[in-house]
Every structure is written in C-alpha cells, then in structure tokens.
Amino acid sequence: MLEVEGLGHVYRTASGEVEAVRQVDLTVAEGEIVTLVGPSGAGKTTLLRSLAGLLPYSRGEVRLGGDVVRSPHPDMALVFQDYTRSLMPWATVRQNVLLPIRKKVRSRAERDARVDAALAEVGLADAADRYPWQLSGGMQQRVALARGLAYRPKMLLFDEPFASVDAQTRADLEDLVLDVCAHLRMTALFVTHDIDEAAYLADRIVVVSHRPSTVRAVLDVDLPRPRDQVTTKSLPAFAELRSRIFPLLRAESAEATA
C-alpha cells in the first residue's frame, strides 16, 4: 500500500545544507502494522512529514496505493505527537472529530454517524460535548485518533503519539491502536523511539539510524495476535526481538555522542 523508495531530505538553512534523511526504503503492505524505531533526533518526524505529504522531499519517491505522494493524500490520516497542540481548544470533542469531514461528507446525518462511530471506536462516546482541555492526556490522544478514523483513511500514520503519557495510559493506548487496526483492517505506520512499543505493535519493525536517517535493519515480527501486554511481552520471542533492536540503537547513540 505504501512504498517509499530512496527517500532523502535536505534542509537548507542559513549555515548551509543539513541532511536529515539520507536514504530510506520501506514498504507497508495492506493491513500491516509497521513500526519505525530510531533514536531521538533521528529525523523520524521529518521522515513522517515527508510521507504524509506535509514536507516536500528532496530525493526519491513516496507512493500510496500507486499514487505519488507530493501533498497530503486523501487515504492517509496522521496522528500527531503533541495532542495538546493538535486539538482545537475552542472546539468540543465532537467538533474536533468533525473537522476533517465537514466538507468531505455532504449529509449531516452521515457526518454525525461517522463522528459517533469514531468516538465509540476509541471509547469516548460520552465525552463528545466536552472540551479537549477538560480531558486527560490519554483521552485527548483518543480524540485525535477518533478524528483520524472519522476521515476514513486507508492508512494511519502515528508520530510518536504516546511519548508524553504515563506508562499505564500508554499500554491502554497501544492496545487501543491494535484493536482499532484489527477491527477496521487498517494499515498503519507507527513511529516511536520506544523499543518495547515498536516490538509490541508491529508486524514488521524498521530500525532507522541517527540523523541523517538510513534504514539499518528491517525485522519481521512473528509474535502471535491478538497480543497482550503481559503474555506477549513475556514471550521468549519478544525478549529476543528486543535484544536484536537494542544494540542497533545503542551503537547509533554511541557513534553520535563519540
């Protein structure tokens, strides 16, 4: 579904050119959950913004369902890292979820049905008339996810969405992502710097290097589904996966600080 070939991105700044992404190739098949894990400052956000069509890339090509992506694609929705900034504080939860489909969906009844379904999907049916700032961080990120779902994309992109919530909430949100993707047969690319999260969610893990990003390894994950925070994470295969990713990232940060 998503094909990335030879993607590179160079920023032009006052002091010259900065290469953020050197060479990234990856594919995400339909219905697959791929996680992209890399150290902090790996240019992951730059990479994701390029894939989402928000940032023009310098080299290579991104295709979604065969279309070359140069601007945001209608089959793709992005869940941002910072939920306090990605939701409109002046709008209720319902209005926030409604935002992407006000013009896209003509019938009011259909719009309302979509919003209700999306909120039910993330377990927030009761919070529709509240404001984002009245909700906990975890609930706000659910609203952001519901907004993506109401858009009815074929693919969801996540940019380190759970980086700033507590551990318990994070586990709940990870399970929510798995449930939603399974239920809606959603394709997803999930960016994170957390190794456990990358392994727990993924069908495949793409490990990227420190800036300028290149793909260091692609690991297939054959942990059984449905996954469970306790049983999956105590499987020997999970531990083995962690131990394969960990050195890849650590070697990176050692090089970066050296």
Binding site: R49, L54, P72, P74, L78, F80, L99, P100, K103
Partner: peptide, 8 residues
C-alpha cells in the same frame, strides 16, 4: 499541519 493533512 492538521488542516493541511486533512486537506481543508
């Protein structure tokens, strides 16, 4: 970015 990504 949200506005752009949802093609408003």
């Amino acid at each position: 970015d949200v506005a752009a990504s949802y093609r408003l």
